[in-house]
Design a protein around this nucleic acid. Structure first.
Length: 472
RNA sequence: GCCGGCAUAGCCAAGUGGUAAGGCAAGGGAUUGCAAAUCCCUCAUCCCCAGUUCGAAUCUGGGUGCCGGCUCCA
C-alpha cells in the first residue's frame, strides 16, 4: 500500500514517507480534561484511531502518543484570564486534581466503549513539568525566548517561518487582533512559555519563581519530543488546533532543534450537529451517554463517524446515526451469514472476486483515508453474496476473512456483546419446536420462539427449502 | 476586516474534465401463516450566475450560505 495523506503544511495530498523505514511516530492532541468529552471531541479521537490502524494495516510499526492536557490553559490571551480547568473545578466545588482524575476516567471509558485501540503513551502535562522547563530554558539561551518578571515568552519574530502552517501573516494577525496589548510582550504575537500566578491552584516552583505553570503550547512540544524524538512523522488534531496551537508548537520546537520537525500535519473537520455548530445554548452538545440513552451502541457512533471522510464537514443528526446503525447491523448480519457457510481458513488467491475487492479497499484507504469508498467495497460484496454469489464454502471463507480484515481497520463489529450464547444444538431444537408450532397453526407460539431466537442473535429465514438460520 | 475550508437525492455520503459509488429511509412487486429476513424494480444532473472546453458536479471569475481560525476549544 502506497499511502498518501493530505498535509496541512503544504495543502496537498502527498506520498507518505516515514523518517525511519517501516516505522511511524504518531502524535495526537488529546483532550483538555476539564469536561466530559462530547461527540465532537470523539470525532478527532476516532480519526486518530483509524489513522493508526491503517498505518499498521499497511505494515508499519507505529508508536502512538496522545496527550492529556490537565493544566494551564487560560480562558483568554490577555493574561488576565482564568485557567478553565480551575474555573470548572471551582464551580463544581472540587479540587482541580480530582476533576482531572474524574474526567480522565470518563475519557478512557469512552475510548474503550468506542473500541479505540489504546495509544502507547498518554502523557499528562503535569507529569512533564521538568521536560517543559528544560525546553523553555534552552529557548532562552538560544535567544528565541525572554523572561519578563516571572513569566517567559517566545519571541515570534525570531522564527521566520511562523505562519507557514495556518497561512496567517503576523501583520494580519495584528490588524485583526482583539486581544489587549500586553505591555510585557516585545511583540503582540509573542506567546507564553511559562506563566506565574500566586493564585493559581496548580503551580510549580522553578528558576523563574515559586508560583509558575506552563504556557499554552509547550506541553505538546516537550512530550512529543520525549516519546517520539526530535523529529517524527505525523501530528494530528482538530482543525481548531491549526492556529495558534500547532503554529506555536512548530515555532518553539523548530527554533530549538533547528531542523524541520513534523513531516505531516493532519487535521479533522469539526463535527456539525443539525447543520450547525454544537452549542450548549441549543442543547445539542451530546456525549456518548446521550447516544446510549437513545438506544444506540457507541459502535454505531464509531461507524457513523468512520464511514465518512475525516476532512469533510460531517453533519450529526439522530436520523443519520440511525442510518449508520442500520448499516452496521447489516454488516454484522453479513458476517453471521458468512460464518454459517464458511469452512476453514483460506489463503489469498483462491477467490479472484475477493482479491479484487481487497485491492479496491486498499486503494481507497491509501488515498488519504477514503473511508466511504473503502466501505462501499464491502457493501458491494454483501450484495453479491445475498444475490447468490460466493456461495461455496471456500468463497465464503475468503469473504469472511476479508470482512474481518476490513473490521481490523474500522473496528465496527466489536465483540458479540450481551448476546445469550446458544449452541447449535440448542438453536436447532428451538427451531424444531417452532416448526411444530407452525404445523399446528400455533403462530403465536412460533413467533415467540422466533423473537427469542432473535434476542439471542439468531436470525431465521423461512425459505422455500425450509428453515435457514445464522448468527449475527 | 484578514486567513483557511465546505456546499452532491428525504437523510448520511463518495466522485475533482468524459456524461452521478455506497449506505439509510421510502414506494411497487415476489416469497411468507405473518415477518423486522431475503430477492426484483423505482427514486438526483451535483447552491446560484457568468465563463473556459468538443465535453464540467469536477477548471476560472462573481455571488449566496455554512464551518473553522485571528481568544481556551477536537
Amino acid at each position: 500500500m502506497e499511502l498518501r495523506f493530505r498535509n496541512t503544511l503544504t495543502g496537498e495530498i502527498e506520498p507518505f514517507e516515514p523518517i525511519e523505514e517501516g516505522k511511524v511516530g504518531l502524535y495526537h492532541c488529546g483532550p483538555t480534561v476539564y469536561a466530559r468529552p462530547h461527540i465532537g471531541n470523539h470525532r478527532a479521537f476516532l480519526f486518530a484511531d483509524l489513522l493508526r490502524r491503517v498505518l499498521e494495516y499497511a505494515g508499519f510499526e507505529v508508536t502512538q502518543v496522545m496527550n492529556l492536557t490537565d493544566v494551564g490553559h487560560l480562558t483568554d490571551d490577555a493574561d488576565e484570564g482564568e485557567d478553565k480547568l480551575e474555573k470548572r473545578a471551582r464551580r463544581e466545588k472540587i479540587d482541580p486534581w480530582d476533576l482531572v482524575e474524574k474526567v480522565s476516567e470518563s475519557f478512557f471509558t469512552d475510548l474503550a466503549s468506542l473500541a479505540v485501540m489504546p495509544a502507547h503513551h498518554y502523557p499528562r502535562a503535569t507529569g512533564h513539568i521538568p521536560e517543559m522547563l528544560e525546553m523553555v530554558c534552552a529557548l532562552i539561551e538560544k535567544g528565541n525566548a525572554y523572561q519578563v518578571g516571572e513569566d517567559v515568552y517566545f519571541h515570534v519574530p525570531s522564527f521566520a517561518k511562523y505562519g507557514r502552517l495556518s497561512g496567517n501573516k503576523v501583520d494580519n494577525l495584528e490588524a485583526g487582533a482583539r486581544l489587549e496589548v500586553n505591555p510585557d510582550k516585545k511583540h503582540p504575537s509573542d506567546f507564553a512559555l511559562w506563566k506565574s500566578d500566586p493564585d493559581h491552584l496548580m503551580k510549580w516552583e522553578s528558576q523563574f519563581g515559586p508560583h509558575g505553570f506552563p504556557g499554552w503550547h509547550i506541553e505538546c512540544s516537550a512530550m512529543s519530543r520525549k516519546y517520539l524524538g526530535d523529529r517524527f512523522d505525523i501530528h494530528t488534531g482538530g482543525e481548531d488546533n491549526i492556529f495558534p496551537h500547532h503554529e506555536c508548537e512548530i515555532a518553539q520546537t523548530e527554533a530549538l532543534i533547528e531542523k524541520s520537525w513534523v513531516s505531516t500535519w493532519m487535521h479533522t473537520r469539526f463535527l456539525q450537529v443539525d447543520g450547525g455548530k454544537m452549542s450548549k445554548s441549543v442543547g445539542n452538545v451530546w456525549t456518548l451517554d446521550d447516544v446510549q440513552e437513545r438506544g444506540f451502541s457507541p459502535l454505531d457512533f464509531r461507524f457513523f463517524v468512520l464511514r465518512t471522510h475525516y476532512r469533510g464537514a460531517m453533519n450529526f443528526t439522530w436520523e443519520a446515526l440511525k442510518g449508520a446503525a442500520e448499516a452496521r447491523r447489516n454488516l454484522a448480519d453479513f458476517k453471521g451469514r458468512l460464518e454459517a457457510s464458511a469452512h476453514g481458513a483460506v489463503n489469498e488467491g483462491v477467490c479472484a472476486r475477493i482479491d479484487e475487492a481487497r485491492e479496491l479497499f486498499q486503494a481507497a484507504l491509501a488515498e488519504d483515508l477514503n473511508a466511504s469508498a473503502a466501505l462501499a467495497v464491502l457493501f458491494d460484496l454483501r450484495s453479491d453474496f445475498l444475490q447468490g454469489d460466493l456461495k461455496t464454502a471456500e468463497e465464503a471463507s475468503a469473504a469472511l476473512s476479508f470482512l474481518l480484515e476490513v473490521d481490523g481497520v474500522f473496528g465496527f463489529l466489536g465483540p458479540d456483546e450481551g448476546i445469550i450464547s446458544l449452541s447449535d444444538e440448542e438453536v436447532e431444537s428451538l427451531i424444531a419446536e417452532r416448526e411444530e408450532a407452525r404445523q399446528s397453526k400455533n403462530f403465536q407460539r412460533a413467533d415467540e420462539l422466533r423473537a427469542s431466537l432473535m434476542e439471542a442473535g439468531i436470525v431465521l429465514e423461512d425459505v422455500a427449502e425450509g428453515i435457514r438460520w445464522h448468527r449475527i
